[in-house]
Design a protein around this nucleic acid. Sequence first.
DNA 1: GCTGCCTATGTTAGCGCTACCAAGAGCCCA
DNA 2: TGGGCTCTTGGTAGCGCTAACATAGGCAGC
Lengths: 342, 342
Amino acid sequence: MPRRAGERRRLVQQPSMADVAAQAGVSAVTVSRVVNGHASVTPETRERVEQAMRALGYRANTAAQALATGRFGTIGVVSFDLTATGNLYIVDAVIREAQQAGYGVNLATLDAAIDARLQAAVRRLTSLAIDGLVVVEARILDAPSLRLPDNVPVVVAEGASDVGYPAVGADHGAGATAAVEHLLNLGHQTVHHVTGLADSYPAVRRKEAWQRALRRRGCGIPEPVTGDWTAASGYAAGLELLRDPGVTAIFAANDQMAAGVLRAAAELGRRVPDDLSVVGYDDAEVAGFLNPPLTTVRQDLAGVGKHCVNVLLTAMRGEKLDWSTRLLAPELVIRSSTAPPA
Amino acid sequence: MPRRAGERRRLVQQPSMADVAAQAGVSAVTVSRVVNGHASVTPETRERVEQAMRALGYRANTAAQALATGRFGTIGVVSFDLTATGNLYIVDAVIREAQQAGYGVNLATLDAAIDARLQAAVRRLTSLAIDGLVVVEARILDAPSLRLPDNVPVVVAEGASDVGYPAVGADHGAGATAAVEHLLNLGHQTVHHVTGLADSYPAVRRKEAWQRALRRRGCGIPEPVTGDWTAASGYAAGLELLRDPGVTAIFAANDQMAAGVLRAAAELGRRVPDDLSVVGYDDAEVAGFLNPPLTTVRQDLAGVGKHCVNVLLTAMRGEKLDWSTRLLAPELVIRSSTAPPA
DNA sequence: GCTGCCTATGTTAGCGCTACCAAGAGCCCA
DNA sequence: TGGGCTCTTGGTAGCGCTAACATAGGCAGC
């Protein structure tokens, strides 16, 4: 059966506003007003429309709304590997906070190497489907061929504002300093360090602060061992460091690696905390239940995520931003993995 | 300055297809064809258009594309708490796989209690902005007032197909059975169990299989202790169970809780594995580096996520689905936390 | 040289929604 | 009684894109 020129099959077999309008005996505009909670609709009309919506199972077409308003009701999040504790906690908080504000979240994760297909996904994310973008970890900005959108606000979680965007992060400097000073105050001569991924922003900040703290106290600065955030890398680092019987204190850049160090110590017969003190970072859920319970630095990563979203929402409203980097204070949680050296 | 009726400010100050078309001296349709890689465009025209796009920094407007085609290039994911290892690994894999297929991911997380604002976010997710939906964990389907879309395919990760949708999951029955039989084969009289969240699908499956396995071997079935997936709950459960000196084997429904049990044992002076054997579940990254390294059940959660997306993509192409539940086989990883009873 | 067909591009309309303007109804007060 | 006000509702156009159809030009085959 031939169709009239221009006539096209309904793409979505869902009822549209026009259907609801017809059912309720009002115009589409009135339906729109009800959907968006505009004022100046009589209670009776509203009720009639809502009844029609229920009857037809109406759902607003987000794409059409977005096209008409230029707003998408969605914020984008780009992050590296979610299985890294830090990224996860931030992303989780971003999602919660965005949802609280009535926004959906479009999440893209990147591998270090961005291949062509992935690029397509990221390009989609960064095209015109979001009202704002949260970049988790400044290192992402270095990703080749990642072109960020220039028409929506961007906020960086775990970065400094020198990256060209407002940034929110935990105060890794303060956290690492607290960890090192805690160990030095216990009487350790120096503190060894297992770093996170070499080019990660938090890893670099923690390493720098560890060095500074040692220097300030006039301690020797041992060569740090580079890890990759995993327990396996912490274990390997632990085996390496503990070949030296003089090592009495190790500060690992996260709890997973600290767990690896604890394991290495156990295997080599070094008692913690008697022979060796270990400090982690993150206060992951399991940290307090390792053997022994781990002294660590609790970061308010949920706060970072929350803050990010709030800065972003402010920018999205077009209000002026406080452009300075916000740093959230960490807290040293002392448990049983640290003690004075024997 | 008065504007003509109907004239409206450009909502997005981004160049549109019309701008590119003008710049390249072609029609908008030709630009569209280039953008979508359609055939029948001469190389010269294509080149001219591409140059114009680069010059103007053109990005396609996703909302307009979606409105015109009825396709969104996005799949939705609904999950509970991402900080639970199982959910995280599945969601992570779903994102990767969707991106590989050129789809973006819209992620919503739910708390047990869905409040009004959250509902708005979920409603947005499940309105007409996605081409398909992955529900992580069958329990989500029980969430009050969560109305799933009826016009796009839905797949459930960690559920059975009796929920009314195709389902993909890990074989918790096989995993729990392997864990229990491993312990019984070592000579333990029975095996105690710390469960996951009471109404969680995987938790229930694991508990049932644990019971079945004990019954099959004619062992007594001790009262299980209910946990909530956290190390803290595992610790509490451990303290409770270990009041009984006759307890020699504990199977925890995930590694975090197993870590808590290990901690409780250490505190009470029960040596693992000499006095007590412990088995976890998940093979979380840290499991092999606990003290002692944890015997656990490795699940292919990445496989579950991947499989989900593939089933979903099949359904989205309108192809017929194999409607049966797919179960991915787990693998028992034996480490040092299990041994014959003293 | 004409028909017929194929290829490259253009024209048109409409996806579902909302901003803007207009208009009718009801009301108050002079 | 009428002018001006508010409150509710409707008409219209257009957001940026693409499917379907239309068309111009080229070229093979007879």
